[in-house]
Design a protein around this nucleic acid. Structure first.
Length: 238
DNA sequence: CGAACGATTGACT
DNA sequence: GTCAATCGTTCGT
């Protein structure tokens, strides 16, 4: 069934060549500006050296949430620096990966200057390459669960949610501290193709943070590319 | 040391 | 729509 997509755009554009690293200076700025800029950018994971048959995985970031400052009651930084959130207080461009609900990993990109804790949660990615490897990684994670049931997943939904992004790209807490702006990093961010027009962006409240109370629960700090078929949620939450 | 609680997902009524 | 899976982090005793 879900073998190969037919309507894939011709790879005439150098999506194959090494893209430009995502500029750290953008991530050093205000988190909402960085969030807007990172939409449309690429998340890249090289094939593992020990896995010669492995594919490179690439996806377009289409949904993010900003967690801004120690004062943000929804942020892991709300209790000050701890062993878990320490990297959020570090320099921009580093990865912060944590485990939620005891079973899912979530990838964040640290933003704002050092000592100011802030990050962007990568909530959804539109697969562009390596879908086979993503599906394989998702299946391997799922098979570990006691209630696992094999179910088909469309290419566009392989990384449609924060836990799915980490699963599809094989990301876990050991990746915390990786420099996502370093072109030599096996997991990194790249600028969108230069000819690509800036995507439309829509802002909504953040998901799953009611515990934070107001005004934090209502801050429109979730930014999405509304046209994407890869947004999180059962029906691709616009 | 114990216990409550998730920046979620997927199965099921 | 409801609910369980599963474990690291945090906080209270």
């Amino acid at each position: 069934m879900t073998r190969r997509r037919v309507g894939r755009p011709p790879p005439a554009t150098p999506t194959a060549g090494p893209g430009s690293p995502f500029p750290r200076g953008v991530l050093a700025g205000p988190s909402l500006d960085a969030a807007r800029a990172i939409l449309g950018a690429l998340l890249v994971r090289d094939a593992d050296p020990g896995d010669p048959s492995g594919e490179r995985r690439v996806g377009r970031i289409v949904e993010v949430e900003a967690y801004i400052g120690e004062e943000d009651r929804a942020s892991h930084a709300r209790m000050g620096p701890t062993a878990r959130n320490r990297v959020m207080f570090g320099p921009p461009g580093l990865a912060y990966v944590y485990l939620v609900y005891g079973m899912h990993h979530c990838l964040n990109v640290v933003t704002e200057p050092e000592l100011r804790p802030a990050a962007l949660l990568i909530r959804a990615v539109e697969p562009l390459a390596g879908e086979e490897r993503m599906r394989q990684a998702r299946a391997a994670d799922r098979s570990r669960r006691s209630d696992a049931v094999a179910r088909p997943v469309a290419d566009a939904r392989l990384a449609a949610g924060p836990g799915r992004v980490a699963s599809a790209f094989g990301i876990d807490r050991s990746h915390t501290g990786l420099d996502l702006c370093d072109p030599a990093s096996p997991l990194r961010l790249e600028l969108p193709p230069a000819d690509e027009t800036r995507p439309d962006v829509r802002a909504t409240p953040r998901i799953g943070i009611a515990y934070a109370g107001e005004p934090w629960a209502s801050k429109p700090w979730r930014l999405v590319v509304p046209d994407s078929p890869s947004l999180s949620g059962p029906r691709g939450g616009r």
